[in-house]
């Protein structure tokens, strides 16, 4: 059983639907009002009924004061790394350090190809993501001078422009499930950002995935605690539905989230469902109680 000792963060996982146009903005404002730390948005550019997540994130950040924003997770194949690094650093600067880079290797490859992106095999996707994270960090690195040059199997840059004013290193959170991706996460990521619904094998599967990340971190000479463990709960309901891990009144959520924090090291909880009431109670009732429980247990 692991507790990596991270401070706890609570947030929302919002569907970036284009109709009504202000849906995502309104839920971000509700999230901020509820005292949540983070508002995150899926990124599926090939989904015609969705907004462009990158633009939505920027707009949301411009309309809020405290809450941090992130793609959950950004589709790398449709958002090449140097442009992504520049956009991220720009939002981060304008928002006073409120940007987080949730990123994935890409899913729905047919959709990606239809949109004009490059279709890769899963193995190539993992390798491309690792290469891209290197490029992004390089572009942000304030200690690097001169043009950015890179020649890799998936990306090449000649005399690229750095983005020198990241407010501070922006955390990179990787969405991952399979062994190769978990290994990448442990080796290079600042956070792990899966959805509980997609973790095979329930809580034992979660423990296994955490171990894989820990092992990969050790192998890379890092502390496992260098990788924050986040979790999406796409189905989260205060009214019992018989579905989902968070299913029932606040007490049920508080117990389960406390357990995940203390026994599985999950320190960031992001809930879906797009329901303002649920988000409000999550932020105002549930989050303080979980924080208190965990602080008490850690004492």
């Amino acid at each position: 059983m692991n507790d990596y000792g991270h401070d706890l963060l609570f947030g929302s996982f919002v569907t970036p639907v284009a109709q009504p146009a202000q849906h995502g903005v309104d839920l971000a404002l509700v999230s901020e009002q509820a005292g949540l730390d983070l508002v995150t948005f899926q990124d599926h550019p090939y989904q015609p009924s969705f907004h462009d997540t990158s633009t939505l994130l920027t707009y949301v950040a411009s309309r809020t004061q405290k809450i941090a924003v992130s793609g959950n997770v950004t589709s790398l194949p449709l958002r090449p790394p140097l442009g992504l690094a520049r956009a991220a650093a720009t939002v981060d600067r304008l928002s006073g350090g409120r940007f987080r880079l949730g990123i994935g290797a890409g899913a729905f490859w047919d959709g990606i190809a239809r949109m004009g992106g490059r279709k890769l095999t899963p193995a190539q996707g993992v390798a491309a993501l690792r290469e891209a994270i290197g490029i992004i960090r390089d572009a942000w690195d304030p200690d690097q001078q001169g043009p950015l040059n890179h020649e890799g199997p998936f990306y090449r840059i000649e005399d690229g422009d750095r983005t020198p004013y990241a407010h501070r290193p922006i955390p990179i959170w990787v969405g991952s499930y399979k062994p190769r991706m978990l290994a990448l996460t442990g080796a290079v990521a600042d956070g792990w950002l899966p959805s509980i619904e997609y973790i095979d094998g329930g809580l034992p599967g979660l423990a296994d995935a955490n171990h894989r990340i820990d092992d990969a971190a050790h192998e890379a000479g890092r502390e496992p605690a260098a990788v924050r463990r986040l979790m999406n709960f796409m189905r989260a309901s205060l009214v019992p539905t018989g579905q989902g891990f968070l299913d029932g009144p606040p007490e049920v959520w508080i117990d389960r989230l406390t357990m995940l924090a203390l026994e599985h090291g999950i320190s960031t909880f992001l809930i879906g469902g797009d329901d303002p009431t649920t988000l409000t109670r999550f932020g105002t009732e549930i989050a303080p109680a979980v924080r208190e429980n965990v602080a008490h247990a850690r004492r």
Binding site: H51, L56, R79, P80, G116, F154, D161
Partner: peptide
């Protein structure tokens, strides 16, 4: 044109979607 290996390239359809999104968010 989009070059998938060009780390600073941009997918035209994604750019078009960004334009449409801002037009909808900020009429």
């Amino acid at each position: 044109p989009f070059d998938p290996a060009g780390a600073d390239s941009a997918v035209p359809a994604v750019l078009a979607k960004a334009v449409a999104t801002l037009a909808a968010l900020a009429p």
